[in-house]
Design a protein around this nucleic acid. Structure first.
Lengths: 393, 393
DNA sequence: CCTCCTTCTGATAAACGCTTTCATGGCTGA
DNA sequence: TCAGCCATGAAAGCGTTTATCAGAAGGAGG
């Protein structure tokens, strides 16, 4: 049985009102009756009013959360003093500080973020624009961004890019910019990302996590996909394959780095350049692509746009009775968590999405602070496993 | 060559300043020189000042984004009129409306969300607390939440729960509550989620997306894992297996529904209840669990806590030379996107995470609006594929 | 011992950008 | 001519922070 400041039983009020009821409610009531804070003897009146309030007679009153002024009144100090205790911007006597902290505790006070943001002009949100949250690379990058943001006390807001037209990009951007943003990070792994980047006003600090080098002059944290694809292709050629087929993933408005790197490596080696097979980055489309390639009969090595596609491609080959890697070698891209335990285990180009996400935040913050930071950059690394081998014929 | 209102060439200014430069900059300059808005003839002075500003002589001035008062001044109307045009809260003559819209366009004005939130008391952020963004179920639920939130004009903020102790839950909660939140949704699939739920103050509207029924009396969008596990176990028993082994995933503070359902089904069937094998929800731990089970020699059917674990378990069995489903049947939980193309394709209990995420938002909003909404609820559905079959001996 | 100056603490007030209420002035229609 | 309506503007918040100011306490010098 907890007892309020004037002997009012909060539990009684609570039972009468049929809902939780806090010290704060009591004070609101006193205020309403016009009682100064430490006025004893009006407990009964307060209780009555409290119950009225709690039962909905005056809903708005009860709903109001405690504000700085409430804390100040309860602690018997002025509003700025409370603010100073909270922010530590100026010295406050130990005595008052204690009172203030106790009042905050009692009232369950939490600063109003909107008011704080308005007064300080400081922004504490980083908005992430992405077309997807579920696929491995996207999800990892988001995790990296969130971790880095949290480390410096920022919150991450997420906005999905639904359509791949300019209009829906604009809508998404408008929604995101409706918040007081410190900056924006766009996951520019696809056309939606590029569209969103284009739709962003130049006035807002922006960084992109990107797998392509060119485009609008926005600072980018970059995967050097091109070099990665070149390495992967050279690896397969080095195993003795005459050429390497490619299952492409959708391009973000311009030829993807993976495609370019693949073609460059083939050209450099003087190998024939097969027609590209398209996919939509899903395992299912990989299945279709694999079935198509299996039907051709002359395929011995395939570089896939990502691991999920590679899984589908491998599955399709196996369904057609071809063995991987004995009959055909498959190399993926990203190093998906399941690549390791796939059958056969998948040889792939590892990318550290989370790390690039983290560095993208640092990059953005550095630019915000006016410190020149070099654009982060990461080259995929070959992870040799069991899905690629020298050709058998 | 665009020309400013008094014949000032913005392009000239831009070239001189070496950075993009907008109409708005001009007006700021006029303001600084003390010119009323439509005052002709001071173009040259403005340009000079503009270049000073842009080149950093007065950085703050240039940095200031346009506010409602700027729009009002440019449009030649009062501040409330602009506000009315924006919110449509009161009629405005077509004439002024047009002027206002043009001014907004020219200045690239965007309302300040913090000020708006402060004035209206309306909150536009839903915070999602989760221990993970990358795993399938979590990522899908986040997507569902984001979609539903976006549909009603809300933004989703993401905060990861790092440690599984109370202290780090408190830190995460504090960070999230630092924003002006409309409400919080906790993904309570694990102990971190439960901790966060416990750390949330009762004053903030909260909903949980959960796979367990009990716990703190917070409204929950619920997966009926228990029924799902019961169904899965009964399915395996129905195929003729003497009993079913279980590879468990970490519990969120209390026995997981999956475990309970599994045990109930076995008890009801009078089947022996084998010891549970633990995993940490990763494929790799599934590998270990599978190796352990394969070593026992008497295992014919396994129900896994999720699909990723099931993948590992299957792989381990195969590595030990056991065939799935001929020698041992494996059933998963969740219907991971790769379950379909795994070898063998995985029989599993499908859960629609995205849909439950969406309904959780509706649920939260309904409660915010005071409309009584029934707690959403979803029962996993058996998807029969190729990884489970009758025992062969 | 009194006064003046310094130092430290707390309070008052003015922003921050937007919404909203209320009052006013110009119209229309009877 | 006057009531009534409508568009508009002035002003008062919303909950913080911060700059400025006043007052008290304390020490030193006369």
């Amino acid at each position: 049985m907890t007892t309020g400041p004037d002997g009012v039983h909060l539990d009684v009020a609570q039972r009468l009102a049929g809902r939780p009821c806090h010290q704060h409610d009591l004070w609101l009531c006193r205020e309403r009756v016009g009682l100064p804070y430490p006025a004893a003897g009006a407990a009964r009146l307060c209780l009555r009013l409290l119950v009225c309030t709690l039962t909905g007679v005056n809903r708005r009153l009860h709903t109001r959360p405690p504000v700085l002024a409430d804390v100040a009144r309860v602690a018997g100090v002025s509003v700025p003093t409370v603010s100073r205790v909270l922010s530590g911007s100026a010295p406050v006597s130990a005595d008052k500080r204690r009172q203030v902290l106790r009042a905050i505790q009692e009232l369950g006070y939490r600063p109003n973020a909107a008011a704080r943001a308005l007064a300080t002009g400081k922004r504490s949100i980083i908005s992430v624009l992405t077309s997807d949250t579920t696929r491995y690379g996207y999800a990892s990058a988001i995790r990296g961004i969130e971790e880095a943001a949290r480390a410096v006390g920022l919150v991450v807001a997420l906005t999905l890019l639904d359509g791949d037209d300019n209009e829906s990009a604009r809508v998404a951007v408008d929604l995101a910019l409706g918040q007081p943003l410190a900056g924006v990070i766009v996951l520019e792994f696809d056309i939606q990302g590029s569209r969103a980047l284009a739709a962003l006003p130049r006035t807002i600090p922006t960084a992109a996590v990107s797998s392509a080098g060119q485009g609008r002059s926005v600072p980018r944290a970059l995967f050097d996909d091109r070099a990665g694809a070149r390495d992967a292709t050279n690896y397969l050629l080095g195993l003795g394959h005459r050429t390497v087929h490619h299952v492409g993933i959708p391009e973000s408005g311009r030829p993807s780095g993976r495609l370019l790197g693949w073609r460059e490596a083939l050209e450099a080696a003087g190998a024939p350049i097969p027609e590209i097979v398209e996919s939509d980055e899903t395992p299912r489309s990989g299945l279709r692509a694999g079935a198509h390639l299996a039907g051709r009969g002359d395929v011995t090595a395939v570089l896939c746009g990502n691991d999920e596609v590679a899984f589908g491609v491998i599955k399709a080959f196996q369904d057609e009775g071809m063995r991987v890697p004995e009959d055909v070698s498959v190399v993926g891209f990203d190093d998906h968590p399941l690549a390791e335990i796939w059958t056969p285990s998948l040889t792939t180009m590892r990318q550290d999405f989370a790390e690039l996400g983290r560095t993208a935040v640092d990059f953005l913050l550095g630019r915000l602070a006016g410190v020149p930071v070099e654009a982060p950059h990461s080259t995929p690394r070959l992870v040799v496993r069991g899905s690629a081998a020298p050709p058998t014929r």
